[in-house]
């Protein structure tokens, strides 16, 4: 369980997050939604333990995120970032193998068990045939699947993703979201994902954290979150839900 209590974050003098409190239950699949600059990525980075908030605290499984050391944290929370690096000279297999780092000692090489786990997660993400490819040789969708495989190799109860589909075409967006749905359902992994596309969230993520103006606007089911009234407030456009698909109307756009 991830518990966020009275979290406030500022970067220098600029306030990014203001007094957020919510709980994310085990085995849930939650989208973080909000307009640009509403603090989605910062919230995810705080939960991943990459940056410490000035006020409030985040507990993961009853223990403050800051009290884990890097190895312990990497066995609790895995993070897939928005833009995977493409200029590295490590093959897909070597990249995924890095996900086993939190379980290895210094100077210790990979065990047979590590290799088996890597093969299994690469088959699961349909990347095993790419194992000898370098990042520069893969397409955006393939590379993102390799990054998800690396996060799975960490064998964490929590998986965080920062807009993993932002640079992908629609078919590959669906592919990634379906993969995540499978992981959530079959393994009970708790997934927290920053999404830009509201329809994608509505289609795949049962739960939503909706941010507006640096603070929490709504936490609950995605269907309830994405009603016209809230969308209008958070994004400044009006919308209509037609058979489970949101249709937006830019005419009513307000400055926000």
């Amino acid at each position: 369980m991830i518990e966020v209590k009275n979290l406030s974050y500022s970067y220098g003098k600029k306030e990014i997050l203001r007094d957020l409190s919510f709980t994310i239950g085990d085995g849930t699949f939650t989208a973080i939604l909000g307009a640009n600059g509403s603090g989605k990525t910062t919230l995810l980075r705080c939960i991943a333990g990459l940056t410490a908030a000035q006020q409030g605290h985040i507990d993961i499984d009853g223990q403050a995120i800051g009290s884990y050391n890097a190895r312990e944290r990497a066995r609790k929370v895995a993070l897939v970032q928005q833009h995977p690096q493409t200029d590295l000279e490590f093959s897909a297999f070597e990249t995924v193998l890095m996900g086993r780092n939190p379980y290895q000692r210094h100077l210790q090489n990979e065990s047979k068990a590590d290799w088996d786990i890597v093969e299994q997660v690469m088959r699961q993400t349909n990347t095993f045939h790419l194992r000898f490819s370098l990042p520069g040789e893969m397409s955006g969708g393939e590379l993102q699947r390799v990054m998800i495989a690396r996060a799975l190799a960490q064998q964490t109860p929590y998986l965080l993703l920062d807009e993993p589909t932002s640079s992908l075409d629609i078919a590959h967006q669906f592919e990634i979201m379906e993969l995540l749905t499978d992981i959530n359902r079959n393994e009970g992994k708790t997934i927290l994902i920053v999404v830009h596309d509201l329809n994608l969230a509505l289609r795949y993520c049962p739960e939503t954290i909706l941010l507006y103006d640096k603070s929490l606007l709504f936490k609950g089911s995605t269907k309830e979150a994405l009603v016209n009234e809230r969308i209008q407030k958070a994004f400044g456009v009006s919308s209509e839900n037609i058979g489970g698909y949101l249709k937006f109307d830019s005419a009513n756009r307000k400055e926000c």
Partner: peptide, 24 residues
């Protein structure tokens, strides 16, 4: 030599290295 594996992870960027368990 002791940190040679961490050097590989540092190559992937300090945030990624940190999320993979390196005290960057």
């Amino acid at each position: 030599l002791y940190y040679s594996k961490d050097l590989n992870l540092l190559l992937t960027g300090s945030e990624t290295a940190q999320s993979l368990g390196v005290e960057v």
